[in-house]
Write a protein that binds this DNA or RNA. Structure first.
Lengths: 202, 202
DNA sequence: ATAAAATATTGAACGATGTTCAAAATAATT
DNA sequence: AATTATTTTGAACATCGTTCAATATTTTAT
């Protein structure tokens, strides 16, 4: 019988859930191998039979977070019609997700792994939906743009939106009330969308 | 005689230089107390007589980096006349600095300290020049804006610029050739500046 | 100049951490 | 039921930042 595999999957799932809960509550910087294994009900070494190491476990939590974010953004996508309004909805959806899942969201970008062991390709690929979901409305705004240029621009737009949100949610600069942040984000997206639409040819 | 104070200042300076060199070469994540103290020629515990702890030392390195960035941006400021061009120069200057001092620049924002001991106020204040230097051209673009709104908008603009740069310099998404990044950044800044100038009243 | 007091420097020791791996426990096979 | 294969365990290890009693140094007092 496949009892072996069954238990192994169960352990992986328990560790994943425990890690997710810990990160959600305390932030990724406070995740401890001894804490997750205790929560998951296994010995310390058990982590290293289910996952490569603690970073690998965190990557799998981030993978879940990305899927959850993807679902949130899919909801925000269909509500309106014009490409500009879709971009606005995407930005607002991204902000909403960041506010509602702050620690999980922060873990997506705060998690720096050693230079000699970068993120596996499958996980880097998971980030790409963020760009593709932006590229779609962009294609309507600037149909004559090449697919490559559009990908670059999508990344630029994402960087701008992400930067505005994270600079505010960090404590480095004085905080902003959420409604204010929503408004700022919206205005910038509108400006960029208007700029994109007007620059059909330069 | 003030021999005491003299030696103390010398030790602080040696530790600061050693830490700066290490961060510049290996990144802040690879800074080790034992390495800096050895480089500085003192015992391990010496660090804790000169600085509160390793984080405090890093903050002082970041303080130097901020002053250096401030000088770089001051140079970029006077070259052109129109507020839009000044904003463009600031963004390009910021990008240039980030590229030329990648690890020191990353240390400014990657350095997360424990939640119970946030950055001291004097260091948080040092970040504010980044916003004030942006607020100045903004004031010309939108003179009727209140000072508070302008501060918020400056922060938003900085977040966008910073986000675009950091999303590219991180390995999370595929890298971009520097000229391409320069161009993307410039276009976005132009769009936002144009948007700001056109929205004199809404 | 010399002794006494004040201060600074040292580095062994501590606690916390991620990771390893031989031994014990468990599951699968014969 | 016995044997083999695999998994789980947790003590041990290496590497951190940090502390603090002991030592060395500088200042002050005589």
């Amino acid at each position: 019988m496949g009892r072996r595999e069954e238990k192994r999957e169960d352990l992986k799932a328990r560790l994943l859930e425990a890690a997710r809960d810990r990160i959600e509550r305390d932030g990724v910087a406070n995740l401890r191998a001894r804490d997750v294994t205790q929560d998951a009900g296994c010995a310390l070494g058990g982590l290293y039979s289910a996952y490569t190491d603690l970073n690998d476990l965190i990557i799998h939590v981030n993978s879940i977070t990305l899927k959850s974010l993807e679902q949130s953004l899919a909801l925000a996508k269909v509500k309106d019609k014009s490409p500009t309004d879709r971009l606005r909805n995407l930005a607002q959806g991204y902000l909403k997700f960041a506010l509602a899942n702050r620690n999980l969201w922060k873990a997506l970008f705060e998690h720096y792994l050693p230079a000699d062991t970068p993120s596996p390709q499958w996980h880097l690929d998971e980030h790409l939906f963020l760009l593709s979901v932006i590229a779609e409305p962009l294609a309507e705004l600037q149909p004559e743009m090449s697919a490559e240029d559009r990908a670059v621009r999508a990344r630029t737009l994402f960087g701008a939106v992400h930067g505005i949100i994270s600079i505010t949610l960090e404590a480095r600069f004085v905080g902003l009330p959420p409604e204010r942040l929503e408004h700022e984000l919206d205005e910038i997206v509108i400006m960029i969308a208007a700029g994109a639409a007007s620059l059909r040819k330069d």
